[in-house]
Nucleic acid binder design. Structure first.
Length: 824
RNA sequence: GCCCCCGUAGCCCAACAGGCAGAGGCAGCCCCCUUAAAAGGGGUCGAGUGCCGGUUCGAAUCCGGUCGGGGGCACCA
């Protein structure tokens, strides 16, 4: 039978503006109590999608994140929660400067222009944001609180300035955090990063390393791989700190080692060539050689340094270190294979049991002494270090102990001598905060020739960016803010004398490390965030975003949250209770890029298929965390389905929902129940499949029995449309209207599966013989094991399959399965 | 080099807690509608789960190995 409206066109664009207007008028997406309690008693649910950077219009990737977040927010709202689904913009950052340079305008107008474009695109996609949360990190009212937090950190000793070898991107003309360097290249522009010794601002995140690890216990609803990546990044290792005296020097030198058991095998000592310590230790007669080596080291890029097969080089510094365990004299070398900023920048070299040390020993002709017998050949012979466990040899009183016992015993002995102790070291470095850029938060510090570093008084915040009188890229290599001479000169807050402002701006990850705290009251002026808003909404119940932020943003946000907690400003230590990662939208197996020519334009997709079909396509393509290859999915398939739903809604002639066909009601409620369970498990793609199934069930019911006038059909169609509103909100409203109901469908909530309709009166039981299916029985769901066994053994098909063989065993899993095992 | 994840119809994906491998979509094929085509509607075909072995009455699911793909860290002492 042909449906009555089969030829009617489904126009996915016809009513979008109408529904947007209805939603806005009825304020359906506004949380009921942002900061003042309305006492409506609904549970609150804070659903946050990572905010966008306004680099242009929204792209496919944005559409995916916000489709996921919106489906979860809408589902929570439908099931009775008071939902806050906020939006803001991560609007400081380098691309604005680059664009401004190219187009000869200022970063602000480029940025805010893009924000307006994105806001309009969000609106037309029908994302259910509460727009009252809207914030931009580049607004002075926002970034003043970056400065406020900086001053707080500064007072607590958590913000500090030091000279250090740092990553410098020659293309972007700025330093980069460790986290922003990938394979020796600038994560943003791909230029090879250089090492420069510069004085920079840092946040002391390393002080929180252990807590960042420990509190992961609370993150049970985070993807396992994100936690693993963070653990990896923090890189905890346990070992010992050992103190070496240096001949003819008062100051001893500490090293960190994970293998204190190999202390007797140390045959030389190495310090990082680019560490200050190397310079300190260098004997006068070796000065020339050392300086020459240092120049070469500094010239090498990270790429060169990272090359795995690079031969070891170094210079003797003309000094000797004393092994605290046996008094041996160890020659001290400087080399670039030791890292200046890990541990203490110095290592005890045990060539027999560390491949790097062995390579260096071979290159320099230094002795190799085996002190752990691992059962492998002597490294001195083979050139292969033995790093495994074994028994100590050549280790004085410790000889004979195994690795584990030896470690403990040697640490104990060092402790007795006052020359060492067990300790923990982390790979994590302090967060390099300052950037030599314009479009960011100015660092609220004034440098005074007589008072030194002076914090800007809180009353003078915000330190605003100069709007004129600066150059974005000064030709003399200075930072942009150094060129803002009027802005630069200020009286010292302490002595009143002539002073100058700090000219660095903050990494934009500072902005994004706390924005979710401000959403409930973005206009709050008494602090960075409203404590009432925090109490009502935080921590974030559901955080959605890409895995590319697994380390950077998420680690920083966790850190800042802990700092604020420790100062009594937040009642929790972890900001995000549940994290959902979404994958990338790719095209033909590759990330979309202009150079590959495989860009898919979001606006074109929306124009072709409508916002709902684009959203459904993304959510149906697979689990949220999987990448979506746009070449593998079918937006036209989504359009077809949505059109079927609309036609179905138009074909329902029953005037009210209610009883009607029991059989149909059973199917409908079974599918409501299944979809609900899937939504609760965030299985959005499977949930949509269930709705498609429901559509087919209802279509058949309308075309055959019980027919279009059966109340059960209306019940099913209304349930379908209500559930659909999570994924295809415009179409759902269209369908609701076509069913003769009045807007908004959203206000009618999520359908309820009635338990009595979920009870089945019979199930199919599979009867196997030797694991092969031989018969099927329709049985009551609560059949007893004994009855079922008897029933199965009475089966003629089973009998035939047994072919006279005796029965060895019968496995019964009522009511679904019986397995008869014959004697062989 | 170290660590982790994933391999199910031509493709994207399902499969409760080890129990009938298939829910859904795309493509294909057939039929209907149509003057015709497109669009639409209805139906249908289709894999024994990368490979080898083990545990089990029973394995896509658990274990070991192997191949392939993806990811994280990487001179971190």
């Amino acid at each position: 039978m042909q449906s009555s409206s089969a030829n009617e066109a489904y126009d996915p664009h016809a009513n979008t503006e109408k529904w947007l207007g209805v939603w806005q008028d009825r304020k359906v997406f506004e949380a009921s109590d942002l900061t003042a309690d309305t006492g409506d008693g609904r549970p609150r649910r804070y659903v946050v999608s990572m905010f966008p950077y306004p680099s242009g219009d929204l792209h496919m990737g944005h559409a995916e994140v916000y489709s996921i977040g919106d489906a979860l927010a809408r589902y929570a709202r439908l099931t009775g929660a008071d939902v806050l689904n906020p939006i803001g913009w991560d609007s400081f950052g380098l691309p604005a400067e680059n664009a401004a340079l190219r187009r000869n305008l200022d970063p602000g107008s480029w940025t805010y222009g893009n924000i307006d474009v994105q806001a309009e695109s969000f609106r037309r996609l029908g994302i259910s944001f509460d727009w009252r949360t809207r914030l931009h990190t580049s607004d002075p009212e926002y970034y003043r609180w970056n400065q406020w937090m900086f001053l707080l950190m500064y007072r607590e000793g958590l913000a500090y300035r030091k000279a250090a070898p740092v990553n410098w991107c020659p293309n972007d003309q700025t330093v980069l955090a460790n986290e922003q360097v990938v394979q020796g290249k600038c994560e943003r522009c791909g230029a090879e990063v250089e090492r420069r010794n510069l004085t920079q601002w840092f946040y002391r995140i390393t002080q929180y390393a252990q807590r960042l690890l420990d509190d992961m216990d609370q993150l049970g609803k985070w993807p396992e791989d994100v936690l693993r990546m963070q653990r990896n990044w923090i890189g905890r290792s346990t070992g010992a700190r050992v103190q070496f005296t240096i001949e003819d020097r008062d100051e001893p030198v500490q090293v960190f080692t994970t293998r204190p058991d190999t202390l007797f095998g140390a045959t030389f000592f190495v310090v990082a060539a680019d560490a200050e310590l190397a310079d300190d230790l260098c004997a006068p007669e070796q000065r020339g050689e050392f300086e020459a080596y240092l120049v070469k080291t500094r010239a090498a890029t990270d790429i060169e340094r990272l090359a795995a097969d690079r031969p070891k080089t170094g210079v003797f510094l003309g000094r000797y270190a004393i092994n605290p365990i046996n008094g041996e004299k160890l020659p001290v070398y400087a080399s670039d294979y030791v890292l200046a900023d890990y541990g203490t920048g110095a290592v005890m070299a045990v060539p027999a049991h560390d491949q790097r040390d062995l390579d260096f020993a071979v290159a320099m002709g230094l002795p190799v002494r085996m002190v752990v017998d691992t059962g492998e050949a002597d490294p001195a012979e083979t050139g292969v270090a033995t790093a495994g466990l074994g028994a100590l040899v050549n280790s004085g009183q410790f000889t004979g102990q195994d690795t584990v016992a030896g470690k403990a015993a040697i640490i104990a002995e060092l402790g007795r001598l006052g020359l060492g102790e067990a300790t923990v070291n982390y790979r994590l470095r302090d967060w390099l905060l300052s950037r030599q850029r314009y479009w960011g938060t100015p660092i609220p510090i004034i440098h005074c020739p007589s008072c030194g570093e002076v914090p800007v008084p809180e009353a003078d915040l915000p330190v605003r960016l100069p709007e004129s009188g600066y150059e974005l890229r000064p030709t003399d290599g200075r930072a942009p803010l150094e060129s803002a001479t009027d802005w630069l000169a200020v009286p010292c807050p302490t002595c009143g004398g002539a002073a100058r402002r700090d000219t660095d701006t903050m990494d934009t990850f500072v902005d994004s490390s706390w924005y979710f705290l401000r959403y409930p009251n973005p206009g709050y002026t008494d602090g960075p965030f409203d404590p009432e808003g925090i109490r009502r909404w935080l921590p974030v119940a559901e955080y959605i975003g890409g895995k590319e932020h697994a380390i950077l943003h998420l680690l920083y946000a966790r850190f800042i949250t802990k700092v604020l907690h420790d100062r009594g400003l937040l009642p929790f230590v972890e900001p995000f209770t549940r994290l959902t990662n979404q994958g990338q939208v790719i095209m033909n197996g590759k990330a979309m890029s202009k150079s590959l020519g495989n860009l898919v334009n979001l606006q074109e997709q929306i124009a072709d298929y409508g916002p709902d079909a684009v959203r459904v396509t993304m959510l149906f393509a697979g689990p949220p965390e999987d990448d979506i290859d746009w070449a593998d999915v079918s937006p036209s398939g989504a359009v077809k389905w949505l059109a079927r739903v609309i036609r179905l809604a138009g074909d329902v002639t029953a005037s009210s929902p209610g009883e009607g066909s029991l059989e149909l009601r059973r199917q409908v409620h079974r599918l409501i129940d299944a979809t609900t369970t899937l939504m609760d498990g965030r299985r959005l793609n499977v949930a949509i499949a269930r709705l498609m199934e429901l559509t087919t069930v209802l279509r058949k019911a309308a075309d055959g029995t019980p027919g279009p006038a059966d109340p059960a059909l209306r019940e099913g169609a209304e349930a379908l449309v209500r559930m659909l509103s999570c994924f295809a909100p415009f179409t759902a409203e269209d369908g609701w209207e076509r069913l003769g109901r009045t807007a908004s469908v959203i206000e009618h909530g999520w359908p309820h599966a009635e338990p009595e309709l979920l009870v089945v009166e019979s199930v199919t039981c599979v009867v196997q013989v030797a694991g092969k299916v031989r018969d099927r029985l329709e049985v009551a769901p609560d059949i007893s094991e004994d009855d079922l066994r008897a029933l199965a053994l009475a089966s003629a098909k089973v009998d035939r399959a047994l072919a006279g063989a005796a029965i060895r065993d019968v496995i019964v899993r009522a009511p679904r399965l019986v397995n008869v095992i014959p004697q062989k």
